[in-house]
Design a protein around this nucleic acid. Structure first.
Lengths: 191, 191
DNA sequence: TTAATCTCTTGACATTAATCAAGCAATTAA
DNA sequence: TTAATTGCTTGATTAATGTCAAGAGATTAA
C-alpha cells in the first residue's frame, strides 16, 4: 500500500520480508486529524496504534489545573496509549494534534491478526517494546541524575527540529520544568 | 522444581498451565549472592534474568563520582539488565546485593527456549513487558508533575517494608533527591 | 482591520532542593 | 573493647526552580 509506512515499520520493528511488509502496511488506514482534535481522549477506549506520516501529536494528561506533556510525536514516530491498546484499559493519556496531522492507523483487532500470518511478528514486537523500555529507563535516569539545564541540552541536541514547530511550553513540560525556567535556560544556553 | 518460583512467574506473566509452569521453573537455578557482591556489572555481559527469592538487589549506575540508584528489587521481583538480556548489549547497570541474596536465575539461551515448547510464551512475555513499560510511564510522570515530597509519600505508601531494610540514601537516589532532602522530608512528613 | 488570544520573555520574589560541614548512633573491623 | 566506618540527621548557606505579574510580538478570530 505505502512505501513510506513500510519504512517506518521496518525502522521500528526491524528487518521483515518485503512482501510481509506490504501485507502489514495494507492493514493500516491513512487518516487526518485536524489541529486541536484528539486522536485519543483520556478515559476513553484507545484501541488504535498509529504512525505519524506528517504533523505533530502531543501526548498529555491533566493534573488538577495543569497539563503535563508526556511526549510529542513527530513524523515517523509511533503513537498509542499502550496500556489501552494492549489491555483494553481506558486511555491514560490525551493525544491531540498540534497541527493538521496525517497518521497511518490500525485497530487492535487488525493489529493482532498480524501474528497469524507472520509467525515471527511476536518476537519482533517484543524487541520493539524492549527498545521503548530502555528509552524510558534513560529518561528516568535523566531525572535522577541531571539538572534542568542538562536535560534541556540533551533533548535539544537530539531533537533540534522540534523547537521550530512545537510551542516551547510543551517541551518544557515534557522535560519537567516550567515555561519560565525553560525560557531562562534557553537564554543562557545560547544554542 | 519449586513452587515459590512458579508463583512469581505466574504473578508476573499471568495464567499459565501448571505443568508448563513446572517445566519453566525447572530451567532456573537457585544461586546466592553475598552481600556486596554483584549479580551484574556495568559494561559486562548481562545475559541472565532472575527472580529474587530472598534478599535485596540494588540496580545503579555511576555518573562522575556519584552513584544513581535506579531501582531496588526485593522478594518476588524480577531483575535483569533488559537491554543486555535481549540485545546482548554490555550491561547498562550495576546490580549488587545489599544483603546476602538468593535468586532464581536463568540464562538467555534457556530462557529463549521456553517459546519452543510453550507457544503462548511470546504473547505472555509481551504483556509482561508492556506492564513494565506503563510502570516506567508512571514513574516519568511522577518526575514531571510531583514535588520531592509527593514522590516520597507515593513511594512510601506502596513500599513501606523497604524502609526498614534498605539504606535510605538509596531510596532517596531512586526518587531523585539527596539523602539530606530525603531526611528532612521524612521528618516533616511523619508517616 | 481591530480586537482577542497565544506564546514567550523578563523581573521580582518565594519556595524547594542541593551543598557543605558537623555530629551522633549503630554497625563493623581490628 | 576500642577504633573505624557507615548511615542518618541537622544547621547554615547557596543554588536552582517555581510563582506571580506584566508586557511584547505573533497569530487568530470577529
Amino acid at each position: 500500500m505505502n512505501n513510506e509506512l513500510e519504512q517506518y515499520i521496518k525502522l521500528h520493528f526491524g528487518v521483515i520480508d518485503a512482501n510481509e511488509l506490504k501485507t502489514i502496511s495494507s492493514l493500516f488506514e491513512l487518516i487526518t486529524i485536524k489541529k486541536g482534535d484528539y486522536f485519543i481522549k483520556h478515559g476513553k477506549r484507545a484501541d488504535k496504534l498509529s504512525f505519524v506520516k506528517d504533523g505533530l501529536l502531543r501526548i498529555f494528561a491533566q493534573t488538577g489545573k495543569q497539563e503535563i506533556t508526556q511526549w510529542i510525536s513527530s513524523k515517523g514516530y509511533f503513537v498509542a496509549d499502550i496500556s489501552g491498546f494492549v489491555f483494553d484499559n481506558p486511555s491514560r493519556w490525551n493525544i491531540q494534534a498540534l497541527v493538521d496531522t496525517q497518521i497511518y492507523t490500525i485497530s487492535k483487532d487488525k493489529y493482532n491478526s498480524i501474528g497469524d500470518f507472520i509467525p515471527k511478528w511476536n518476537k519482533v514486537e517484543k524487541l520493539f517494546i524492549v527498545r521503548c523500555f530502555t528509552i524510558m529507563e534513560d529518561r528516568i535516569f535523566s531525572h535522577l541524575s541531571m539538572t534542568a539545564q542538562e536535560r534541556y541540552i540533551l533533548f535539544f541536541e537530539n531533537n533540534k527540529e522540534l523547537f521550530n514547530h512545537v510551542p516551547l511550553q510543551y517541551i518544557a513540560s515534557m522535560l519537567g520544568m516550567t515555561p519560565e525556567t525553560f525560557s531562562r535556560i534557553r537564554k543562557k544556553t545560547l544554542l
